[in-house]
Design a protein around this nucleic acid. Structure first.
Ligand SMILES: NC(=O)c1ccc[n+]([C@@H]2O[C@H](COP(=O)([O-])OP(=O)(O)OC[C@H]3O[C@@H](n4cnc5c(N)ncnc54)[C@H](O)[C@@H]3O)[C@@H](O)[C@H]2O)c1
Ligand SMILES: NC(=O)c1ccc[n+]([C@@H]2O[C@H](COP(=O)([O-])OP(=O)(O)OC[C@H]3O[C@@H](n4cnc5c(N)ncnc54)[C@H](O)[C@@H]3O)[C@@H](O)[C@H]2O)c1
Lengths: 207, 207
DNA sequence: TTTAATTCGTGAAGCATTTAACGAATGACA
DNA sequence: TGTCATTCGTTAAATGCTTCACGAATTAAA
């Protein structure tokens, strides 16, 4: 995977979080916010916040803080890429919950279609998401210009689905299956493994 | 949060991943595995794997690799704390999917109870998980000895639920709400924010 | 106008984690 | 038996990220 950024990797998710908070503050009619205030809200340290923001340009005013709208615009221009179409593989328990999640029906992120093996689900429509058979993957991905696939099939089929996604030309995979998948370098993966999250949290607790 | 480990924080989730892979290899009748082979399966570099394992003790044999059972035992003894009881807040779309996830009905992780505001859901039983009203939180947490709470209520109620969890004596929170929550130092939180995961992946793609 | 207090921005210092380099152990095989 | 290739384990170097320290800018108020 290529590497040519001028800011740390871990700044990205924080910046995305700041964007969401700023949006919320804007909606509540606020105009300015300081790094200290953002720190209280997000749990990120104020210095870290200033450092993060300074990666993208000078936008704050001493003694006043940041103009919320300007900061939000700057952050969005820096890390918020344009809208993305997503396709969902597996409309089971998890797939259904995801299909119903309003944040995946926005301008920024839109689930454009789903794929299933189970013939009883094929042809159905869930929350505006049409369910197709697996033969349709290539054509639907092409038509919708989807970039990202969500892997929500049983873990036994995880690698098989990953191969299908790669073959269809998807560029990124969100993998909910508790199994590592092997894919070529030009495709990015994000594994979300709830069991590991739980056990890690448990390690943080007991010390 | 206390800090008294002898190995890096980031080793923990990797070790948990190794454990799962080893388990799988064992089930398939394998006896030995090398760091190179684990690297191919997990996507983690072989040096990193050897380094991780060396944190816990010398267990590998040059030229042969690791005896799978011995390695698994060692890792489990090091990072896999004893079983944990979990309670679920919010039995909506996501809560239902989680309640039906088999990995949360094991000896290691067990969802012991759920809590809801909606009276139509209270008293129901989903996959063996009883749904209680919010008044029952304290007594149920006490009785089940639950340590961790899952926050799967609408984001507007996120902080309120977090406060309830803290008051009930839970020691860790898995937060699915796309809102930072504020809690005292002695409680650990793990935020799982799917929207941010998506946008981060998208940043990895475009470069 | 001056002073004081606040808040940003940044270069340097400090940690944490990963990667590299390499010796030592082991088994395979001539 | 001795040689060779392989794989572990460890110390050191490199990289990446966070925190510190402090100057500069700005506003409020004396
Ligand atoms: N349920 C959860 O809360 C949860 C949480 C974390 C991870 N996961 C993981 O997510 C995945 C899905 O979980 P789930 O609970 O929704 O399982 P599920 O069995 O309810 O759903 C899987 C769906 O995938 C379909 N499917 C099967 N093979 C397929 C294939 N080859 N191609 C396309 N679709 C196929 C099935 O018909 C089914 O509808 C699993 O790998 C699981 O481990 C689930
Ligand atoms: N659906 C998804 O795939 C998904 C994905 C990521 C994050 N999330 C987040 O997870 C949370 C739940 O999502 P969802 O889709 O299940 O929402 P949902 O509306 O389907 O379910 C929420 C449930 O919580 C209950 N509830 C409301 N207030 C409550 C309270 N004070 N105490 C206890 N229960 C209460 C409601 O009765 C409802 O059953 C939301 O914050 C959402 O942003 C959802």
């Amino acid at each position: 995977m290529q590497r040519s950024r001028k800011y740390p990797q871990r700044t990205i998710p924080r910046a995305l979080l700041y964007i969401r908070i700023l949006d919320d503050l804007l909606k509540r009619g606020k105009q300015f916010v300081s790094s200290g205030e953002l720190a209280r809200i997000t749990g990120v340290r104020d210095v870290q916040i200033r450092k993060d923001i300074s990666n993208f340009g000078p936008v704050g005013k001493p003694r006043v803080g940041y103009q919320i709208r300007a900061l939000k615009n700057l952050l969005e221009a820096s890390v918020q890429k344009k809208a993305v179409q997503v396709v969902l593989f597996g409309m089971g328990n998890l797939g259904k919950a995801i299909a119903r999640y309003p944040e995946f029906h926005t301008e920024k992120i839109k689930i454009a279609a789903a794929f299933e093996k189970d013939p009883r689900l094929i042809g159905k429509d869930l929350n505006g998401i049409r369910v197709y058979s697996l033969e349709k993957v290539n054509s639907v991905v092409k038509r919708t210009r989807a970039l990202i696939g969500i892997n929500a099939v049983p873990k036994e089929a995880a690698q098989e689905m990953a191969d299908v996604m790669v073959a269809a030309g998807l560029r990124g995979i969100i993998n909910f299956c508790p199994t590592p998948i092997t894919i070529p370098d030009h495709v990015a993966v994000k594994n979300i493994d709830l069991t590991i999250e739980f056990m890690t949290l448990l390690c943080d607790i007991n010390p």
